[in-house]
Design a protein around this nucleic acid. Structure first.
Lengths: 365, 365
DNA sequence: GCGAAGGGGTTTTACGTATAACTACCGCCG
DNA sequence: CGGCGGTAGTTATACGTAAAACCCCTTCGC
């Protein structure tokens, strides 16, 4: 066996590398930090590098962060990872982060809606910035007041006071400081063109000949869903079309019962159900089947998001494809820009209608 | 406006708290670390606490980690978060971690399969331990050699050499050290009773009268899928039953084409398709519908995992419910135990057959 | 022949925390 | 009255890194 000289294995430090290379610790730091232009000879630099990966040296991140005052880590605040959309947002954000030597740590709501005292306690590592979905209502409150750079996803772009538009000025003098604080972290916005998406859905259905619509909407009280509802209402010509709205939680079962209730108590049946989400659309399809209606022959259904679910169900869903990974990438890019001192523009990412088997011309009466 | 005495806002340190409370920094550390029993008077302790949250003091995690030599952070290595199962594993792991003041950072394969040089580069923060799914084949190689405590999820429990059972002893003397190294991080295992799950599926179908089976298996070459195949083969009585196997990637489209190919070229049609995953089952249902076969009247289908998808499709899938969150919780608990010096037992979590509409007695010929 | 300019490093310091080691004070017992 | 133990702190140090400040030697311009 090899000499067990040092049985207690501890990670090699830059000083160990220095000793091995016969130079000072400072030199190691310069070389490995690529700051040795004209300060260290190429020979010595090579020597240091050799010693470093002989020893398998990895800089201690804690020490690095302490010295540099930054952590190269961002927090992504989302409602729940089991929602495929947000899993994809994370994937995109993490990819862009990795390209810049950043990491991403998550703060999803544990149970999907809990209050969860402190998002920053769960993120053991300190943070350089935050990317937050407006749907992550469980954490928006705690976000204010932290002077951290903030990027909001799919939230009201006219709202610069960002986290929580609650309450006016407080009683005591904290008002001025609060204004100052929110002013400091120049919040950037990354939004999806959800209004345009709803436009496209509506025009698609109008073009097929539909006139009576039901909007199966998310019960989550968030800008993105308000924007969809508003866009839908504005697109449908009044007088010649009717639009009813039903709200539901974002799961298949809730959607099914919501739609069953709406249709059994309903007046004249809609010919198309427009859903805020593919999950809702899947629930809608189940409800319709239960009621003996065929999709799309008797009634059309549209979704939103283009999740994997959209092509897993039968018939496949006509839906609006959202560039989820791109949301994450753009969000992280905006955050990185803020961290470099720039003030990025708000971005709005395009969406695309995907026509599949769940929509067709309405049956002749 | 309030006096802008200190325009450059920097986070308060323990020294600031000390100054505000009129004590030394060490005292602050003692009080806030709850180590002041008999060392600091209750009056002073209260004073310190008051000053601390007046200033909104939060200990600098980087400094803390540097001093303590640990980060209270674990890495969870999974194939992809868009797989609902692993999103739920994360949720469970993060919940248990939070209860113990730990954080969890993720290392999913960016594109679902990439090689991705270094999992630890992406995790900017240093790590105390690793929890890895055996399906995260992209990272298993890099995991070996890091002396980090390791918990394996759903991998061969008899394999203690854990990451990568590749290669025998190497050429040079690294063999001894390698053995020593793997010996050091006493890998714990958290497994699912997938074999029992397959037993239950098989007995359910046998009980309904099925005799000709097709196993739509995952093409991923991993212990968990081998275990399922083996369990299935062992459960079906030879002679009176037939079992064919088809492999597919883990997405709806691949599953659909795989099954279509199998059934169109096939000999005598199976009466039940047993799938390794709900996603595969959804694909199978689509294939069968395309071939004009009704589920479950003409042919039964079973899934595995009990994802949300299982109740979103029509008919709802008979499947095996896996306690995904519990996998994460148990994995994190095992890791925490290792970090406290214990050597936890391998755990096997029970699974449960959920009978739904995709299975029925086979049609009389 | 001498000051200036660099090349090639080294020494030193700071980051914020946790804790070991030390000090000062007081009451009390022998 | 000297010492001892307990109380209530303080001072000093270490963690590993990055970088500012310094230092010495050689070369070069004039």
């Amino acid at each position: 066996m090899p000499t067990p000289a040092h049985p207690a294995r501890t990670a090699p430090t830059s000083r160990d590398v220095a000793r091995a290379a016969g130079v000072s610790q400072a030199t190691v730091s310069l070389v490995l930090g690529d700051k040795w232009q004209g300060r260290v000879s190429p020979r010595t630099a090579a020597l240091v590098r050799g010693a470093a990966d002989d020893l398998g040296y990895r800089p201690n991140q804690a020490a690095r962060s302490l010295r540099l005052g930054n952590t190269r880590t961002a927090l992504l605040v989302v409602p729940a990872l089991t929602n495929e959309f947000f899993a994809r947002v994370y994937t995109g954000a993490a990819a862009t982060a990795a390209e810049h030597g950043f990491g991403v740590v998550l703060y999803p709501s544990p149970d999907g809606t809990g209050p969860a005292r402190d998002p920053f306690a769960s993120a053991r590592t300190a943070l350089d910035g935050v990317i937050a979905s407006s749907m992550a209502t469980h954490a928006l409150g705690a976000l204010r007041g932290t002077g951290l750079p903030l990027v909001m996803l799919d939230s009201d772009p006219t709202d610069t006071h960002d986290p929580a538009d609650t309450t006016g000025p407080d009683a005591d003098g904290t008002d001025a400081t609060a204004t100052h604080a929110t002013g400091r972290h120049a919040a950037a916005h990354v939004n999806l063109a959800v209004a345009d998406g709803m436009h496209q859905v509506a025009h698609h259905l109008l073009g097929l000949g539909h006139r009576r619509f039901l909007h199966l909407a998310s019960a989550v009280d968030t800008w993105t869903f308000h924007a969809r509802a508003r866009a839908l209402a504005e697109t449908l010509p009044p007088g010649t079309t009717t639009l009813h709205t039903v709200h539901s939680a974002l799961d298949v079962h809730s959607a099914r019962t919501a739609l069953e209730n709406a249709l059994t108590t309903g007046t004249d049946r809609p010919t198309a159900v427009i859903c805020d989400d593919d999950v809702l659309a899947a629930g809608a399809c189940k409800a319709l089947r239960r009621l003996g209606l065929r999709v799309p022959d008797d009634i059309s259904v549209t979704g939103f998001d283009d999740l994997a679910l959209a092509t897993a169900v039968e018939p496949e869903l006509t839906t609006v494809r959202l560039p989820a990974e791109q949301v994450g990438r753009s969000g992280m890019a905006a955050l990185l820009a803020v961290l470099e001192g720039h003030t990025p523009d708000n971005t709005e990412l395009p969406v695309e209608l995907v026509t599949r088997g769940s929509t067709a011309a309405p049956a002749k009466p």
